[in-house]
Design a protein around this nucleic acid. Structure first.
Lengths: 397, 397
DNA sequence: TTTCTTTCATTGACAGCGGAAAATAACGCA
DNA sequence: TGCGTTATTTTCCGCTGTCAATGAAAGAAA
């Protein structure tokens, strides 16, 4: 039972309050004066924005422990009370759904997997509802309310409407998933594309904190990319963006399922690795994990496949860097388990193909447990909860 | 002599005033109510924002001429008084500078060309000062003040600082051009990259009006690209962005001056066209104009060169569309004179390589007289004058 | 101990922006 | 002349963030 004096909603969604909270959330404990510097608000405005957040229990004060003996009044730190609210994130894949229970700081508390009986909206919705129920039961013991549910799905997703426009993988068209899930669970629901959700998580809680222009590249079964430009995740006018997987790197390369030749994904995706090793060795290879094992055992065909994959990924990243000039590119995804096998190739290809000072972009890798996809979904729920949705009038800015 | 009651500075740079003025400037004459709808402001706020703009003479009222007999009080249109202020735009090329005198609506009034005696900052500055002087003389007869000077230079330009970081073409490094030009001319000066300047012009006065996500691709000696994402021109963290010319479309293609193979520019730039035709026919070919003539006369080698160029450009545009999902791509540049020769190839290659609904992007061509580059420079000066510079605090948005 | 100095934080008066609602204006039409 | 209708303006009001001064909490100096 939470203290009755605390309202269960977030304080007013005024710009300053949202901005202050978001800054504390992503940039760790900060003093008010430091907040003032980072946000450009006056110290007075910071005080006024912090107060309701502390009263509502979302922020707490904290004395700096390892404070070096400094002159003047010691600063009090302000940090987010992660335990103040809980969120659930769900990632839908082809054969299972993964759910996480996180706190307000998007730290994973519980992970649950559930196999999918099928891929129809009804089946996925039923499984989601079940998994959410399990996680809610877990949350019951924690005396804190679950404030939102985020769902991440691959494909063309309209986040504002909470609808899946088209998901080739699930074979869905125009499914109002947010509405359905909200009805079934009673929670506020956000639905977003999986790569974009992961990008939000990186932007707020990961390697993208404090950056206004960066990219996340995921390597795995497919090759995906989330872009942050001018501090906002790029959604694309037609729901498609960040399709680095279908950037052509070699028009004479292997055929891709999209119909073209030499897409990054057709060279560096899991299926491509398996196919290449199969063709080169003549032996049956089951999956990417086996290719990885062969490569680590020193099998030349497998190592070469990884080298080609690294080259394609590096070129793809260079294309992103040449077009957008991001400060950083975060390379992640399940395929990163094999990072030692393509690291060198990625960097070499990137530096060869990056134009001018685009090469100064910081390439950084982050291991990505599969759960992180679900965490990304939770991050979108947190974003929505604290009301920092990007909304703008329809005029020329 | 301008009326003494009119202040020579723009009314307060409050958000609403800037937004209203920008909207009227780019979306033509509008009624106040329509402005309210387009900006999301209340009708009252529109009235209050419009008044000081009218008092200062930047906006004027206008009765709708072709008004269909409608019910109720007839609306009064509000439009920008182009004659209220003048601006000068300068484009620096390798061997000459081009200057335009424009009105507040960025309509070109006078064009002047001046050959460059050399490329040192001193020489370019002297020529610029001279050309600005000539244009100021022209302006003298118009009884209106020149309010700003914009300079467009190719290369890595830091617009905020008004400095040219690195221009390979001019062989400049860290030239504080804005400061120098301001000293020499006494005008407020903006300095920006040439393609970005052109993009600003399209965003406010051209085919990008009302769009928050689009791209401008310029075809000519080089292949350039300006990107608008989330309503703002992309500058790139390291000063480089939009380098579509150095996106690889064929790793086995011709060597590019950037050191790589098969860049768009290495296939579709003027130099590439000349080189290919020269190699195929064995005859001497002077420049791109001659290639164009040969192609129009039906010479196969020339037509094929254009076909390959169109293919490369189409693939490059598809890459942009796959990554960013723009609503529209505006194809422009001097090379567009040969558009009939590559139109088909551009579209075919684009549609083949665009992934999913990225193909819904609207490809549109705009002829670009060379003067337009200078007009772009003037557009940056106008933008700066009316104070809609994108400024944001350094926190996570 | 007392008093400075320094830095962090808060307060309270205040200005200005933008919103809501009501009033006003300018028509066609009966 | 009134009435309905749409556009615009006015009036008032709340809210947000700034400014300038004040308070708070240390260490340093006297």
């Amino acid at each position: 039972m939470s203290p009755p004096s605390r309202a269960e909603t977030f304080p007013a969604h005024t710009p300053a309050v949202s901005q202050i909270f978001t800054t504390v959330l992503s940039q760790g404990p900060l003093t008010r004066l430091e907040l003032s510097r980072r946000t450009g608000l006056s110290p007075a405005a910071v005080t006024k924005a912090v107060r309701p957040l502390i009263e509502a229990g979302y922020l707490v004060e904290d004395v700096a422990e390892d404070a070096p003996p400094a002159l003047g009044r010691p600063a009090t730190l302000v940090r987010v009370d992660g335990g103040r609210a809980l969120f659930i994130g769900i990632k839908v894949t082809g054969d299972e759904i993964i759910g996480v229970l996180t706190d307000l700081r998007c730290r994973i508390l519980v992970v649950r997997h559930l196999p999918l009986p099928g891929r129809t909206p009804q089946q996925v919705l039923a499984a989601t509802t079940g998994l959410v129920g399990e996680l809610l039961t877990e949350a019951d013991g924690m005396d804190v309310t679950v404030m939102g549910l985020g769902v991440a799905v691959s494909g063309d997703v309209d986040r504002a409407e909470g609808a899946v426009r088209y998901s080739p993988f699930l074979e869905w068209r125009d499914v109002p998933l947010a509405e359905l899930a909200a009805m079934a669970t009673g929670l506020p629901v956000t639905v977003d594309n999986d790569v974009r959700a992961l990008t939000v998580a990186e932007q707020w809680f990961g390697a993208g904190v404090g950056l206004s222009d960066f990219a996340v590249v995921t390597v795995g079964a497919g090759i995906g990319c989330g872009l942050v430009v001018h501090g906002r995740v790029v959604a694309g006018a037609h729901g498609v963006a960040g399709e680095i997987g279908h950037v052509t790197v070699d028009p004479a390369g292997p055929l891709c399922h999209c119909g073209n030749r030499g897409c990054v994904e057709a060279i560096a995706g899991d299926a491509a690795l398996v196919r290449e090793v199969r063709a080169a060795t003549g032996t049956e290879v089951a999956d990417a994990a086996e290719v990885l094992e062969l490569a680590h055992r020193g099998v030349a065909a497998a190592r070469e496949a990884y080298a080609r994959a690294g080259d394609a990924i590096g070129r793809g990243i260079a294309t992103v860097a040449n077009l957008l000039g991001p400060e950083r590119v975060i390379i992640s995804g399940e395929g990163l388990a094999a990072y030692d096998l393509f690291a060198e190739q990625i960097r070499a290809a990137f530096h060869a193909a990056a134009f001018g000072s685009a090469a100064e972009c910081d390439l950084r890798t982050r291991p990505l447990p599969f759960d992180e996809w679900a965490r990304g979904a939770a991050a979108t729920a947190i974003q929505s909860f604290i009301g920092s949705e990007p909304v703008r009038a329809r005029s020329t800015p």
